[in-house]
């Protein structure tokens, strides 16, 4: 896979797929057992020290010092990257301005809210102005408005030429990435822009309105040629193994549902989302496109 400069790359996959391990290998934390990668122009097998200077890493869980203040945490990481004195002051003003932490400089990091902690962690990961930043679930446990602000800031960073490599479980966030990759069981099974990937599912996805969705779901899942059925209130999203004609398949669905005592009220084509794609991949029922 390739990550283009200044773009946000969304790295998706179910829990345990190997996303965090991949990130750790890419930022020089782990030595890969096989395979290779070039990160910021450096080989991850032989130039781990150079990679560490060129990349930033924000871990999944809060990994700063709760007993130090916001400023002390920042200055510590600045120091170990060799940024001290006036340069550190300038960097602090700039980054804390960007992530809106200037007012909280003297607060102990442990006392911050989830969103603030993430912003501080991000500022610390960016202190040495890395070309590429790895963010492992940066918005986990952060409320929607804070997530929004964080993403606005990530776009800002991309504008300024920093590439971002982000894992997330929020698929609305994945939609905002320039490009996404799906990982399953340690293998990258799909990569592309969210729009292109989504379009693979067009004409394979049918919406079904039904009063008794649970019975209908069971009946439809038993049919051949159907990859998955998910319930969204009174709507079922039915994913077929291949492109289908709505009229032809509609009859099959209606018959099966009626037989199960859950007659279908309406049938319509659906706009595919990344969520459909993700669930499809995660169940390993869909062959990679």
């Amino acid at each position: 896979m390739r990550v283009t400069r200044g773009e946000i790359f969304g790295f998706l996959g179910p829990n345990g797929a190997g996303k965090t391990t991949t990130i750790k290998m890419l930022c020089g934390l782990l030595q890969p057992t096989s395979g290779s990668a070039i990160v910021a122009g450096c080989d991850i097998r032989t130039e781990r020290d150079r990679i560490k200077r060129a990349t930033g890493y924000m871990a999944q869980s809060f990994s700063l010092y709760p007993d130090l203040t916001v400023e002390e945490n920042f200055r510590f990481f600045a120091g170990v990257y060799g940024i001290t004195g006036a340069r550190a002051d300038a960097r602090l003003q700039e980054l804390f301005g960007d992530v809106e932490l200037l007012d909280l400089k003297d607060v102990q990091a442990g006392a911050l809210s989830g969103g603030m902690k993430q912003r501080l962690a991000l500022a610390c990961a960016l202190v040495h102005d890395p070309k590429l930043v790895f963010l492992d679930e940066p918005t986990a446990g952060v409320d929607p408005s804070q997530r929004q602000r964080l993403w606005d800031f990530l776009y800002d960073l991309g504008e300024r030429g920093t590439s971002l490599f982000v894992t997330t479980h929020y698929l609305d966030e994945a939609e905002r990435c320039h490009e996404v990759g799906f990982m399953l069981n340690g293998t990258l099974i799909a990569q592309g822009s969210p729009r292109v990937l989504r379009e693979q599912l067009r004409e394979r996805l049918v919406g079904v309105e039904v009063r008794r969705p649970v019975e209908a779901m069971r009946a439809l899942r038993a049919l051949p040629g159907i990859a998955d059925v998910t319930i969204h209130g009174y709507e079922l999203r039915v994913l077929f193994d291949a492109c289908v004609d709505l009229d032809v398949c509609g009859t099959r669905l209606t018959e099966a549902a009626s037989a199960a005592g859950a007659p279908i009220e309406r049938l319509y084509p659906l706009d595919p989302t990344l969520e459909d794609l993700f669930i499809g991949y995660a169940r390993e029922n869909v062959t990679p496109g």
Partner: peptide, 12 residues
């Protein structure tokens, strides 16, 4: 605390 990881990605 998970901070060892953060230290390990620095050039220290």
């Amino acid at each position: 605390r998970g901070t060892m990881e953060q230290l390990a990605v620095t050039p220290l």
